[in-house]
């Protein structure tokens, strides 16, 4: 009897933990979280529309997979192609361009390959490719990894055959990959937000930036209630609407780390 009672109380306690109205889960890419963006913006969200946003930060690929399993209410990632596919397949309601920044190429500060003077990402990648200096690839299906693949394609190079040689696939997040790059003095492609907020730069520096192909668009999608009945659709839509509003976009624009702006409004 005592056992049954204990179990009963336990179940009641557990049911109290269910997500309550006013709470949503945001499946997000890591760069937004690691840069402190959410610490800045979420208290303002709470104040304006009274929605608690719980952020799960994983790579873009994993965030999309998690959302397909209905483990989120809103998806915030940066790989336009797969975002559009996500909405087309009926997982998401609508995709919005939320904000943008850019990708950069980082590497040893000495810049032996003289990448700082280049103007084209294709030449930059070709130089790394030909010099066979160590280059780290995320290889984790993240937005950054997909962008990196597209850049190699653009340069018409196939580095994958050198995997394990100078081309190293870490399979890790951006931060972990940057830690390895710092340790090995290697080249890699990173989003700007993660780079700015990354504190273990050691002898790494930005070697190339500002090419149109390095544009980094963040998109936001509400998960479709028809596909995932559990979605807290009203709060999810409230949240996205607020972010896309004039006020929300202004706030995104106003976020600074040090003196640097990390994300730029898209709307």
């Amino acid at each position: 009897m005592v056992m049954i009672k204990t179990l009963y109380i336990f179940i009641i306690l557990l049911s109290a933990s269910r997500l309550v109205a006013g709470e949503i889960i945001l499946q997000s890419t890591t760069s937004t979280k690691n840069s402190g963006f959410y610490d800045y913006i979420l208290p303002l969200v709470k104040k304006s529309i009274d929605v608690d946003v719980k952020v799960v930060a994983v790579g873009t690929g994993q965030a999309i997979e998690n959302s397909k399993r209905c483990d989120g209410d809103v998806l915030l990632v940066h790989d336009q192609e797969s975002e559009i596919e996500f909405v087309d397949k009926g997982y998401g309601v609508k995709r919005y361009d939320l904000m943008y920044n850019d990708f950069i190429v980082v590497g040893p500060i000495e810049d032996e390959l003289n990448l700082r003077n280049e103007t084209d990402i294709k030449t930059v990648l070709r130089k790394i490719y030909e010099s066979q200096k160590i280059f780290l690839s995320r290889s984790d299906n993240s937005g950054t990894h997909r962008k990196e693949n597209k850049l190699w394609e653009l340069a018409n190079l196939k580095p994958l055959k050198y995997s394990g040689g100078w081309y190293l696939e870490t399979g890790l997040g951006m931060g972990a990959t940057l830690n390895i790059a710092a340790g090995k003095n290697a080249y890699t492609v990173t989003d700007r937000a993660t780079w700015i907020s990354f504190r273990n730069k050691s002898d790494l520096d930005i070697l190339f930036e500002g090419h149109p192909a390095l544009f980094n668009q963040y998109g936001i999608i509400v998960i479709d209630k028809n596909f995932c009945p559990n979605v807290n659709i009203s709060d999810a839509e409230k949240f996205v609407k607020w972010l896309m509003s004039e006020k929300g976009q202004e706030i995104i624009d106003s976020f600074r780390l040090g003196n640097e702006q990390l994300f730029f409004r898209s709307n």
Partner: peptide, 15 residues
């Protein structure tokens, strides 16, 4: 996971 067998409990992402 919400799409898993015990998804109805809403335990994912909780202590």
């Amino acid at each position: 996971s919400r799409s898993g067998p015990l998804g109805w409990m809403n335990f994912l992402y909780t202590p």
